[in-house]
Each structure stands twice: as C-alpha cells, then as structure tokens.
Computed example of a mutant assay.
Amino acid sequence: MATQIDKNRLDTGALDIHPMTPAIGAEILDIDLAATDIANSIPAIRAALLKFGVIFFRDQTLTQDQHIAFARHFGDLEIHPATPKDQPNPEVLRIEHGPQSRGQENNWHSDVTWRERPSLGSILLARDVPECGGDTLFANMHLAYERLSVQMQRFCEGLTAVHDIARVFAKRLGKAPEELHEKYPPMRHPVIRTHPETGQRAIYVNTGFTSHIEGLSDKESRWLLDHLYTSAMDVEIQCRFRWRAGSIAFWDNRVCQHLAVSDYFPARRVMERVTIAGDTPYFDA
C-alpha cells in the first residue's frame, strides 16, 4: 500500500530548481549528470521527479553508456521491442524522424502501458533537433483525475482497462498482432491507478495503447475512454518543453502523459530514450 507523501516536504537538497508551471514540470540548472559524484544527487533528483512529475536538464553531453549509467540509479532498465537486436546498447531506444519519416508520437500517452509492469519513468536525451518545432507536452494525470466529478471518480475507480502493444507496434514493427501477443499479451490495468510512492491517484488510460474498458459495451467503453483521454488536453494541467541538443526530460510514467509535437517535418529530430522498469499498477481503495 502506498503512503501519501506531502510533495512540499520532499527534500530536493541544493538543486537549483525552476518550476515550469504550477501544475507540472521543473527545470534543474547547473548540474552535470555525467559527473563522477552524481550518485550523491540521486535522492534529491528522485524527490524532484516525484514533486514535479517531469524534470528537465540542459547542456548535457552524456554518451550512451553514461545515459544508461544515470538511469540505473533509479532501477532496472527495460529493452523496447522496437530496439534493433544488433545495436551495442539495447537499453537505448533511438527515435529518429526526418524527410523520410514523419513523427508518429503526437498523441497523449504513457510509455509501455502494454507491459505487465509498465515503466517507472523515461529519460529522453535530445541528440539532434529542428531549429524550431518538435516540442514535447506533458500532462499531470493526477490533476486530471482531481478535475473529474466525484461521481465519475468513484465510477472509474472500479473499472479495468485492457492495454495492447499491437495497437501501435504491429504496423511499426511489421508484425501481426497475434505474433506480438505471443510475447506481449494484452494487459489489464486499473483505469485509475495509485502512485506507489506518493499515494496519489491518476487516470491510467491512453490513446496509444488502451483498447477498451472491461464490463462496458463497446459504445460505453468508447465514450468513457474519449472522455478520459480529453482530460489530458487541459492546458491548465500541462507544461511544454522546447528542446535543444543536449537537453534531457525525465518523466514519471505513473502520473504523466506526454505528446511529442510533430510539426517539424521534414526537418530532422533524433532522440535517445532509456526507460526504467516499474511495478504492476494497482488501485488502493
């Protein structure tokens, strides 16, 4: 069972923190994530992640090995099925778009909710970015839950949704859904999940991977999912991050959704993501 944490009392140490909006996000300045003594700052960085949902760093020069090493301070790492099998660092998912590949991540989602244990967080490093465009938006899904009516909160708290990798990756990986399901069968997660560290409740369905809500008719399921999806679109629970080469965003997938704006085509945008494994979502009544 999670214990509610007062976010205002989280110890972020001596970090130079600048909140992005009142709802979500903060930039942490004057820190080198590749420093040999970075382990000393990990408790404060983790506290900042829990407090702000997503944290940002500028002017980082991490190699892939250093990127992986930093992420390992927060837990075990995942290997994404879209990662080429022959690449030297399978923990790094390279997301590259340009003249031959328009960005496809422009929908509100939380990463890998099709896993039994979806990720704790994602650490995304910008390698090459357009002169302008290609921003990423983040939404606080705890605040989205708080803005539901009490009656809708109670209704959703008893529901379970199905998350399916094939909805996105069957076409991208050139595989039949049945083939993907052999290794990654559809997963059942609560529509409202409890954050295991803060105890906060958050909406946990997303346009990318959620196929339906169990126990409802197709029409009811679609209506309710559409209603919950739109909750992420409230600008008052969002922040927007403009990338530069060497920028890093580290977000908590248990409470955030994000959307990568694909407005930069045909310019080139190259990002590298390392993802930290999480735990099985649950609802603490």
Rank of each mutant, 00 (worst) to 15 (best):
I237M: 02
T12S: 13
D16F: 07
L159D: 04
H189D: 10
N89G: 00
D279P: 00
E78F: 02
T113Y: 09
R268E: 13
T36Q: 14
G53K: 08
N107Y: 14
K85Y: 06
R46F: 15
I123G: 02
Y204P: 00
A260G: 10
A176V: 06
G199R: 06
L148A: 08
R9V: 00
D65C: 01
A126K: 12
R254Y: 07
W223D: 08
L93M: 13
I38G: 08
R127P: 00
T3L: 14
A170H: 05
L259P: 00
L225F: 01
F70N: 04
R188F: 11
A232W: 00
A161Q: 10
N8K: 15
V129S: 08
E272K: 15
L148P: 02
N89V: 02
C132D: 13
I28N: 08
M233T: 02
G13W: 07
A267N: 14
R268Q: 13
L49F: 04
G121M: 09
M271L: 15
Y145C: 03
L180H: 07
I31G: 02
C239I: 06
V150Q: 14
S221P: 08
A161P: 10
F155H: 10
G25C: 03
V274W: 08
F74R: 04
T21Q: 07
Y204R: 03
D16K: 14
R193E: 05
Y145R: 03
I68T: 03
A47S: 15
A35C: 07
L143R: 13
E236K: 12
R72G: 01
F283R: 13
W223F: 14
S247G: 08
R117K: 15
M141K: 07
S262P: 11
H67A: 01
H18M: 11
S221Q: 09
A139D: 06
C239H: 08
L124Q: 10
P81D: 09
P84D: 06
E146S: 10
F56K: 06
R188L: 14
D16R: 13
Y204G: 01
D76E: 15
M20F: 06
S262A: 15
F57P: 01
G208V: 04
M152I: 09
G121A: 15
W108S: 05
E197T: 10
N40E: 14
H163Q: 08
Q151M: 13
Q66W: 07
A23W: 01
F169E: 12
N89E: 05
R167T: 06
R188G: 03
R46K: 15
T83V: 15
A260W: 04
E178C: 04
P186W: 12
K183F: 10
H212A: 12
D76H: 12
I248K: 13
T207V: 10
K51W: 06
E157L: 05
L120C: 01
A2K: 09
